[in-house]
Simulated scan of single mutants.
Amino acid sequence: MRADRLVAVLLLMQARVRVTAAQVAGELEISVATARRDLEALSTAGIPVYPQPGRNGGWQLIGGARTDLSGLTASEAQALFLLVGPAASIAPDAQAALRKLVRALPQTFREEAQAAAEAVVIDPARWGEHTKERPEVVRRLQDAVVRRVKVRLVYAGRGREQSERLVDPLGLVDKDDIWYLIAGTPKGQRTFRVERVVSAEVTGEGFERPADFDLTAAWNEVVEQMEGRRSGLTATVLMDERHLWVMQDRLGRHCEVIGTEGDRVRITVTAPTPLMIAQHLAGWGGSIEVLDPPSVQAELARLGTELAARYG
């Protein structure tokens, strides 16, 4: 994320007095153009970072080699530590980094920043488990992402057919304990479900990460595409307003309110097929009314007939 990178640039400048865009790029493994934009962004934001022209020039923190990161506002410091704190609860290295960041903040911000960092604890282990380690393949892929080296994947698709491909690992996403790798391939950017990776060989061959690549934006595009495929059919449903929150909790963005009729609400429910919509709604029995389409009504009738035949 860019906010993380800007803090890293500041800490680097704190340690080195003066840096060039090329040095920042080398340390943070980004392009020189991206490093230059980050330095300019810090300067524009009011942080005393200025370019020094000349043969031995570069970018320097005015007023000496150290900074207390006073360019951060109190709310920005809280937001940063709310993000960093949960990671520190499960990673010793993150705990050490967090302590250093706290010391770098202005004194007036430290108490609230420390409280924000301690506000959330992440316990990834399920009940009955003492610890939960990241899968080895995830650690290997993460190392490749950081080092910017290509990976040779053996990947099993949905039909479990295996294929081998050489990819540029751009970033990893953990969504509800399922890991995804976003990578560059000869056919463009692709997303791989890590649990389907049969093997991952980290090569010594480097690659240039696209300067405009943003992992958050890339993942948002993946989510939109997936949700679009999951929302192929829409049904219109009437239900009691007092139970609406239950439906919304179960279906999330696939349930939308489009109107009211007295104490009932008119909603839309989306899913790829009539059967899948019917399966979502069957448990509500007569407390809901499906207005359309007929295909969903027919699937509900069929499910009702099957259940009555078996249990009636």
Rank of each mutant, 00 (worst) to 15 (best):
V151N: 01
R152G: 00
Y155S: 06
A156T: 02
A156Q: 07
A156V: 10
G157C: 13
R158I: 15
R158D: 14
G159V: 10
E161S: 15
E161K: 12
E161G: 08
Q162E: 14
S163Q: 13
S163F: 13
R165P: 00
V167N: 01
D168K: 01
D168W: 11
P169S: 09
P169C: 07
L170N: 00
G171M: 03
L172T: 02
V173H: 02
V173Q: 07
V173R: 04
V173E: 09
D174L: 12
K175I: 08
D176K: 05
D176S: 12
D177S: 11
D177A: 14
I178G: 00
I178K: 03
W179A: 03
I182M: 11
A183C: 11
A183Q: 01
G184E: 05
G184I: 06
T185M: 08
P186K: 06
K187C: 07
K187E: 13
K187S: 12
K187Y: 08
G188F: 11
Q189Y: 04
R190W: 03
R190P: 04
T191I: 10
T191P: 02
F192A: 00
F192C: 03
F192G: 04
R193V: 14
R193G: 12
R193W: 10
V194Q: 05
V194R: 00
E195V: 09
E195R: 09
R196W: 11
R196H: 15
V197E: 02
V198D: 05
S199N: 06
A200Q: 04
A200M: 07
A200R: 09
E201L: 15
E201G: 05
V202Y: 02
T203D: 02
T203C: 10
T203V: 08
T203N: 07
G204C: 02
G204F: 11
E205D: 14
F207S: 05
E208N: 11
E208I: 08
E208F: 12
R209L: 09
R209V: 13
P210W: 08
A211F: 07
A211K: 08
D212E: 15
D212K: 13
D212Y: 03
D212A: 15
F213K: 07
F213M: 09
D214H: 11
D214Q: 12
L215W: 04
T216G: 10
T216A: 14
T216M: 10
A217F: 10
A217Y: 03
A217G: 10
W219Q: 06
W219G: 04
N220S: 13
N220A: 12
E221V: 11
E221N: 11
V222S: 01
V223N: 01
V223I: 14
V223D: 07
